[in-house]
């Protein structure tokens, strides 16, 4: 880990310049990749891997994944976006994903935070007791 420190620091700087208005800008990322290809830094693959990891993490911060079992209306998605804006103080992009394992209900993941109201989460305490 200590050997990668320089590459991580460099990747962090790349991430900084990739961000515009609080979000990762695809055009800036393309420009950075072009530039890196022309003038590759030392341990280029490591830098790229670290950059990818940081970009993914950054995108996760303003992207909500709404997992649901059953139908979900556009209105609900819009309401969720508003609610998340209240919580995080920034615009959160909501993407949806159907997940039958929830049985019924929803799970919203934003970064490391998970908001869940589903049958499976309610059954979790019962599962712990039975273990």
């Amino acid at each position: 880990m200590a050997g990668n420190r320089k590459q991580i620091e460099f990747a962090k700087k790349l991430l900084e310049i990739s961000i515009e208005d609080g979000e990762v800008n695809p055009e800036r990322v393309s420009a950075i990749l072009e530039e890196l290809k022309k003038n590759p830094p030392a341990k280029y693959p490591k830098v790229l891997r670290a950059y990818l990891k940081l970009v993914k993490k950054e995108i996760k911060k303003y992207t909500a994944v709404l997992e649901h079992s059953g139908a979900i209306s556009d209105k609900a998605i819009l309401e969720l976006g508003k609610e998340l804006f209240e919580i995080y103080g920034r615009r959160i992009h909501v993407t949806t994903k159907s997940s039958e394992e929830l049985i019924a209900g929803v799970r919203v993941s934003v970064g490391d935070d998970v908001y869940e109201n589903s049958i499976i989460s309610r059954m979790q305490p019962l599962r712990s007791i039975s273990l």
Partner: peptide, 10 residues
């Protein structure tokens, strides 16, 4: 009756 659970995960 909403019973949303918030958790921080890794």
């Amino acid at each position: 009756t909403t019973n949303t659970q918030k958790s921080n995960v890794g």
